Simulated scan of single mutants.
Amino acid sequence: MRWENLYVAGLGAYLPEQIYTAEQAVADGVYGAGECEANGYRAVRVAADDEPGPVMAAAAGRQAVARSGLAADDFDVVVHASVGHQGQDVWTPAHYVQNEAVGGNGAAFEVRQGSNSGLAAAEVAASWISARPDATAALVTTGDSFKLPYWDRWKADEQVVYGDGAGAMVLSTRGGFARVRSTASRADASLEPLYRGEDSWTEAPFYNGKPVDLAGRKRSWLSRHEGGYDEAIARINKNFGAVLQTALADADTDLAGTQWFIHANMSKTIVEWGFHGALGLDPDSTVYDWGLDYAHMGGGDQIIGLNRLFETGRPKPGDLIVTAGAGIGFMWTVAVLEVLDTPEWS
């Protein structure tokens, strides 16, 4: 999708104060030494008991809104994205974020698209304000806190460690420090069973009192489908390549013509093979090394990573930034941004 008059006007992040290092996790017996070495994560941030995902998202949202300079009445929609438990069952966290971060009477929605939640929410928000002639701005937030007994951040999935944190982005039709040139999304629902597993229907959330076992679900499905692993990897690579090329073409560029690439905070093996190796990326054009101190923050890595990139003051006017997400389901989203100005807060 080629966008006209769509801008990033604000970014924000909230990262809890408590640090739990991977080295300490190994010493505590909650993380394997071999996994620690292979995955490359150095630490995670751990949210306090009174910092569930929506509370952190609201804090990030307030920062992004303040940086945007827009008023509450300018916001026509709030879209909140998440992966895990949001602090309460049968509840609408998007309205909490709206009330705490910006107020107003715009619509509020929730997006749950796994690790692609943040970018998927941004595309939903962009479509909302672009389709309404009188609409001005949208607030997009992400927020997750991965806590036992529901979620074991060190063991829930293979090659992934989950850190707590939140991000926020303000999209505007009036202007901003970066222009959204394009976005593209693509799904492949044939891969949906990978994270559902076999014989996996349950009667209620957390019905058996055991932590979420994403790795076990994958092993269950793959064990019953010969050649399933190779087929899944082939489909993932094909779809990611297609959505990336679509977004780049709609932005009138190619990967060589871009200066920055923001991807998820995945393990060293995944990143070095799936991003840096496959795409020929220079690690210095990413925030990958920084992300190893925070690990995978659900659907927020890309927005939080963009915030980090701009806070360092490295992007210059004219630079192009690619940010890419992938989430279970499966769905991929890629956005291409053009830097217009260096924001005052960078």
Rank of each mutant, 00 (worst) to 15 (best):
D199Q: 13
V334K: 00
D341M: 04
D73W: 06
S182T: 10
R153A: 06
I304E: 03
T246V: 03
H296D: 13
I270F: 15
H296K: 10
V124M: 14
G274H: 13
D50V: 11
Y41W: 09
G299I: 06
A131M: 06
M1P: 13
A57H: 00
A13I: 06
Y294W: 12
A59S: 13
Y7H: 11
R112H: 12
N105R: 01
W345K: 02
V161F: 04
A215E: 06
H85I: 05
S285K: 11
D134E: 14
I304M: 15
A9E: 05
N237R: 05
G274F: 12
D199G: 15
V26T: 05
T136L: 04
W201P: 02
V334Q: 05
R224E: 04
S182Q: 13
W154E: 04
T286C: 14
W260G: 11
P211Y: 12
Q159G: 11
G318E: 11
I129M: 10
D301M: 08
D49P: 02
G32Y: 04
P205K: 13
A295I: 08
S346L: 01
G300W: 08
Y195K: 00
V336G: 12
V161E: 04
A33E: 14
T323K: 01
Y207L: 08
Q24L: 00
S267D: 00
A242P: 07
F310M: 09
S346K: 07
V243A: 04
D284I: 10
F177N: 02
D28Q: 15
G209Y: 06
Q113R: 11
W260F: 10
A137G: 07
Q63F: 00
G274S: 15
V140L: 09
E110V: 03
L248Y: 05
V111K: 05
V30I: 15
S267A: 04
G10R: 05
R196C: 02
Q259Y: 07
D28M: 14
I129S: 00
Q24K: 06
F261S: 14
H276D: 08
G299A: 08
W3T: 01
A215R: 14
V170F: 00
A324H: 04
V336E: 07
D293R: 00
T21Y: 11
I233S: 12
N5W: 09
D301A: 06
G175P: 01
F109N: 08
L255T: 00
A126H: 04
N116G: 04
M56D: 12
Q98V: 04
